[in-house]
């Protein structure tokens, strides 16, 4: 296994509010990392810093060994073009899908390939169809997003990110906005990706998913990683009271014996 993502001393403040207070993490290729934590713990912010949807206040991020940005005067500086190129290499899926409403499903999945990667339309279409097939929605290619269910929308959003051939995928509470009966199909899709060897970081409240799919679980509390470990141990025997309380709060999830 090789290291694909390295985060050093990541800090993020919004005004006076310090959300991330120094995160260090190294992710191996093919690893599935699940981020847990109560709301306000900084887990979404951390994810959003990795593809620079938020610019870190301090700290360094390396993707595949390359440092993102340049250091000048003791601070990291980022050029917009560099960040766009980086985001094209990191897929992100959002809680609210954020599909493009004026484009068909196929066009949604082709858009980034054509506009950002400069792929020709026939190639982009082939790739898009392959990814739609992978998430089980090839037959919906000509539909508009408004005609899809929440679960289908989210799977299209996953296909849209995958079509860019990302090196890492970020999932930001992707099942939180779904009706309970639609959660399963989306989790199944993500699980399949994990089995295919995709490197993934997932913010989720689905402890069952964390237990069965993650290689590693991080528990964030007040902007730091309070605990981390293999799901089978950390979810069953958390070391801190904080994490015990958090797990008890999620009483819906019953750990397998």
């Amino acid at each position: 296994m090789s290291e694909i993502l390295r985060i050093e001393n990541l800090h993020k403040s919004f005004g006076d509010l310090e959300v991330l207070k120094g995160i260090d993490l190294a992710v191996q290729a093919g690893e599935t990392v699940v981020l847990l934590g109560s709301s306000g713990s900084g887990k979404s912010t951390m994810l959003r810093c990795l593809n620079f949807m938020e610019t870190p206040t301090e700290g360094k991020i390396h993707l595949n060994g390359e440092l993102i940005g340049t250091e000048r005067g003791g601070r990291m500086r980022y050029r917009e073009a560099e960040l766009c190129a980086l985001r094209a290499r990191i897929g992100m899926v959002f809680q609210h899908f954020n599909l493009f409403p004026h484009m068909t499903v196929l066009e949604n999945v082709m858009e980034g390939q054509v506009i950002v990667l400069g792929r020709g339309k026939p190639e982009a279409q082939d790739k898009a169809m392959a990814q739609l097939d992978r998430v089980g929605l090839a037959e919906k290619a000509a539909e508009y997003p408004a005609r899809l269910s929440g679960g289908q929308k989210q799977r299209v959003a996953i296909a849209r990110a995958l079509a860019m051939d990302p090196e890492v995928m970020l999932f930001d509470e992707v099942t939180s906005a779904l009706d309970p009966e639609l959660v399963g199909e989306v989790l199944k899709t993500i699980r399949q990706l994990a089995e295919d060897g995709m490197t993934m970081l997932c913010v989720t409240h689905e402890l069952g998913f964390a237990y069965h799919v993650a290689n590693r679980v991080l528990f964030l509390h007040e902007g730091t990683i309070l605990e981390q470990g293999e799901p089978q141990s950390i979810l069953k025997a958390p070391a801190t009271d904080r994490m015990s309380e958090f797990l008890e709060g999620h009483s819906l999830f019953k750990l397998p014996d």
Binding site: N51, M53, E80, A81, C84, A85, L86, R87, A88, R89, G91, M92, F94, H96, N98, L99, F100, P101, H102, E111, G112, I115, V116, L117, R160, A161, M164
Partner: peptide, 27 residues
């Protein structure tokens, strides 16, 4: 237009002008 649409464009690597032209303005 919902700010999330800007984010969606940004997340697949589009710059400001591409997102504006392709995602925001048509709607």
């Amino acid at each position: 237009i919902n700010r999330a649409q800007w984010e969606a464009g940004k997340a697949i690597g589009m710059n400001y002008n591409q997102t504006l032209r392709r995602i925001i303005l048509p709607v």
